[in-house]
């Protein structure tokens, strides 16, 4: 896999925040006013309803990781921050894509989805919608391979991650 290619400047941080209104705005506002770039951001509730977890992939070309963490930690509603070095993290992401698929190429696309262990979730006359979950780099590869067929629409969730046990 070409997992890390060109991605060394990206780092995952997992931020446990209080589940209060405006928290996401505080985090996003901090990133923008300090000039930290976010590559992707995912927010979800946790098993404790007082807290939510923000998983952000940050661009270390824009600021040192330590500064990003220190500044985030100053937000009163930020409870804790885990930095996940790509090598220590289990990362996963979800992709949904609608791809052009005339009769003659439909088979090829279905085969590709099979190889990547994805799923066909919708079929139209001239297009297919596929779903794929997995490591973001795997999604990158898949995206590249289906691009020549003609992507009508694509959505990715941004990665979520937990540290390895």
């Amino acid at each position: 896999m070409k997992a890390a290619t060109g991605m060394e400047h990206l780092h995952i941080i997992s931020v446990l925040v209080e589940n209060k209104s405006g928290v996401l705005a505080r985090v996003a506002g901090l990133f923008s006013r300090r000039g930290f770039n976010i590559y992707s951001l995912a927010v979800a509730p946790t098993d404790d309803k007082r807290f939510s977890r923000i998983t952000a992939v940050v661009d270390l070309d824009s600021a040192p990781l330590e500064q990003i963490i220190m500044q985030l930690d100053k937000l009163i509603n930020v409870v804790s921050i885990d930095e996940l070095a790509p090598s220590d993290a289990i990362e996963t992401e979800l992709l949904l894509a609608t791809v052009k698929s005339d009769n003659d190429i439909r088979g090829q696309i279905i085969q590709l989805v099979g190889v990547f262990e994805g799923k066909i979730v919708d079929v139209g006359i001239a297009s297919l919608t596929v779903m794929l979950a997995g490591h973001p780099s795997k999604l990158d590869d898949f995206e590249e391979l289906i691009r020549p067929y003609g992507i009508v629409d694509i959505q990715r969730t941004g990665r979520v991650a937990l540290s390895r046990l």
Binding site: S21, G22, A25, R26, G29, R33, L75, I76
Partner: peptide, 14 residues
Amino acid sequence: TTGITMGVTKHNWL
């Protein structure tokens, strides 16, 4: 007000 002052306060509350 909380939105406007978010970047210039240590914290704010509505």
